[in-house]
Design a protein around this nucleic acid. Structure first.
Lengths: 200, 200
DNA sequence: CCCAAATGTGACTACCCAGTCATCTATTTG
DNA sequence: CAAATAGATGACTGGGTAGTCACATTTGGG
């Protein structure tokens, strides 16, 4: 958490710090991002940064939080709409895709977070993973109970597959995948590879 | 490519260099791995390393190649056995899993390679990705032509899903996922989420 | 045995980094 | 107005890195 001093700053200055930090952390993962470059970019002294934040990690987690706040505000609608599990998931990934296009920097910050390899960030990664797994498990249980989802599948394996594909999809949003491709990927997950003899 | 000098080395010394490099690159991604630590670990002078290799990247790519050579030798059997696409894939991931357990260092080196973010490695990553995509495409085309795989699916999307899940599976081999879980994940991909009304 | 070529060496360069702290400046308060 | 508090500063510390190079040592051929 930033120190009070940071919130006492004139908004312009505060925004300049945030902007520089977001740009740096969008470009490089935590380990390679440079605090020195951030302070140079926003024109404050190195020491000042330590009046505002405890350390590099503190600044980083604040910026990641900001990025996720933006994303939640954007993507939350998908779950609100309701419908069957497949339309909710499709809506969710479509919203994520649009978010990545409209707010590429926040998207990159949020997404790079999950690639962090540093020891100091592992507890935060673990916390995030667990909370997501929990949300999805709830969602999936309901869909299995209602017969929407094939009951012979292992819920943990389903989560694993969705997590892996979702992460990779979102990773590649930068590189011009379009809505059509997204739908095709979701079709693969929905239908499975085995040819179906039944009507659809 | 290593310089000739490297191959002129007494095998013991050469192996010591390889061992130290494999250990370092198994632990840390290219960007964070330290050449200095490698030379300290194997007890040669910093300058000697530059008699053997062009630079850090040269050493790294050599080690990654070694790791993949080991893996190919281990996993190649899966494709040789033949059978339908699902049994080949299952065999492939089972072999990968066993490889990860028996040769954890090589496994980690090979796998971390795909996380590399540095500019200097991008061409090599791209080359690797394309060659894998090509192999899989061939394989998938055949399975679609023969009706094994649902023909309504987009082959590119199928590759995308398998690539994402395969990468994540292999990532988590370290953390005690067992054969049973692997089969459950492959079931999700094979059957899809939608409940099936047909006989199986 | 000698000399030239090949190989080994580690101190050194030039760079990067996060974080500190004594000192300066501005603002607030009594 | 003065004292006290809060904020700003950037040179500095101590650490890390990849890569270099003048010199030392080993080796093999004549």
């Amino acid at each position: 958490m930033p120190k009070q001093t940071f919130f006492n700053l004139e908004p312009d200055k505060r925004q300049a710090v945030i902007k520089a930090a977001v740009e740096e952390f969008a470009q490089l993962p935590f380990e390679q991002a440079s605090l020195t470059k951030i302070v140079e970019k926003c024109g404050i002294a190195k020491g000042s940064m330590y009046q505002y934040f405890e350390d590099k990690r503190d600044l980083y987690l604040y910026v990641v939080d900001l990025a996720y706040e933006q994303k939640r505000a954007y993507v939350g609608k998908a779950f609100a709409k309701g419908g069957d599990i497949f339309s909710v998931l499709e809506e969710y990934y479509l919203e994520s895709y649009r978010f990545a296009q409209e707010h590429p920097l926040f998207h990159q910050v949020a997404n790079k977070f999950w690639d962090s390899k540093t020891e100091v960030l592992q507890p935060y990664l673990e916390k995030g993973r667990l909370s997501r797994a929990h949300d999805f498990a709830q969602f999936l249980d309901d869909a299995m109970a209602s017969g929407e989802v094939n009951g012979v599948l292992d819920p943990e394996a389903v989560f694993f597959v969705y997590h892996a594909v979702g992460k990779d999809l979102i990773d590649h949003f930068d590189q011009g995948r379009n809505d059509e491709f997204l739908k095709n990927v979701l079709d693969v997950l929905r239908l499975g590879l085995t040819a179906r003899r039944e009507e659809m």
